[in-house]
Design a protein around this nucleic acid. Structure first.
Lengths: 182, 182
DNA sequence: TCAGCCCCTGACCGATCGGTCAGGCATGCT
DNA sequence: AGCATGCCTGACCGATCGGTCAGGGGCTGA
């Protein structure tokens, strides 16, 4: 079953995204992906160094966007500006990349601890700090965490809701839920 | 290394809870649990029919509490009452059983789809419906989902925050974030 | 025509998984 | 003394995992 074109690389990516979205990263085997593509498991590993390389290539655009958001937040001098930038930026990012987020399927905590994702964890901490308006109060920190974790978990779920409707709903929620800085 | 007492059953439960909390259910092997207890893997399977039986026994009290909460919510005639009962009941439940919730470590979606947990999914849907004040508007449904998923993910994280402080923070957040029924 | 490269295959590897099984060693009842 | 029962062990099972490897077909440029 020889494949004609070098587009196999992209087909593997698409197949992996589909499978990860259903059974999660850990719950998807290289054989699953190969079967979905219609090639051998060895072919998958010809195009990608290993299983993790598929995931990192799949998540690369989202991670890059997260990094630029981080820079924008850090550049904000006052807590109010940082909170607003974090809220709007994070919602925009969550909606734009909800397909990518969805395919992690609640494996965030486990994946974040893996080597190569540690800097993501630092970015998330700064994001939480900004959403809490740089407050130390536990109520602000708890609220920020609930909202970030909840939004991340939510975006993949409401696939039937159009982008702008989802974005409006999330922004309105954040406006209501976030405590003002003080 | 013969073990003297039948307390091994409870030691296995405690060890499993510890390991599940760190590496998750799927990420913890029966051998891991056995090593933590200091017995053989076969001993673990002498006390429990299989791996899932350990998890279900660990989660039994939390599931029972969730079921009674569901009954209380369903009994509420009007949306406002259902929303209030759901909010207060869910926060209380999340804080009381945060240790149990923590050891699922974001494996909620995967575990809920497993047979034997399907009725939990129905309960969660009713909980979401109540929190959205039985509204069909996507903004209300999205907000309810964010809050439920976020709170579930949060509770295990803030182990250093005392129970009542966490409960107050979550209740205040829900009061701000939930749209009134209409 | 032929060498060389790209793309891919099937066979195979060691490791680990959840789970089974026969047997052994205490303890306690008859 | 003899026997049953409860608790536990090491050895083993088939399945599956991520990953490796030698080789083979087809295309291309010399």
């Amino acid at each position: 079953m020889a494949r004609l074109a070098p587009q196999t690389h992209d087909e593997i990516l698409a197949a992996a995204a589909r499978r990860f979205g259903v059974t999660g990263y850990r719950g998807t085997s290289l054989q699953d992906i190969a079967s979905e593509v219609g090639c051998s498991k060895a072919a998958v590993l010809y195009h990608f160094a290993n299983k993790e390389a598929i995931l990192t290539e799949l998540m690369a655009p989202a991670i890059e966007a997260l990094r630029t958001l981080d820079e924008r937040i850090v550049a904000q001098p006052d807590p109010e500006g940082a909170q607003r930038a974090a809220a709007e930026g994070f919602v925009d990012l969550a909606v734009r990349f909800r397909a990518e987020i969805a395919l992690l399927r609640g494996e965030f905590p486990n994946l974040l601890q893996q080597p190569g994702f540690t800097h993501i964890q630092q970015i998330s901490e700064r994001l939480l700090d900004a959403l809490a308006a740089r407050s130390e109060r536990s109520s602000a920190r708890v609220a920020a965490f609930v909202l970030v974790a909840g939004i991340a978990e939510t975006c993949g779920e409401f696939a039937d809701v159009p982008d702008d409707e989802l974005r409006d709903a999330l922004l309105a929620l954040l406006r209501r839920a976030l405590e003002p800085a003080r």
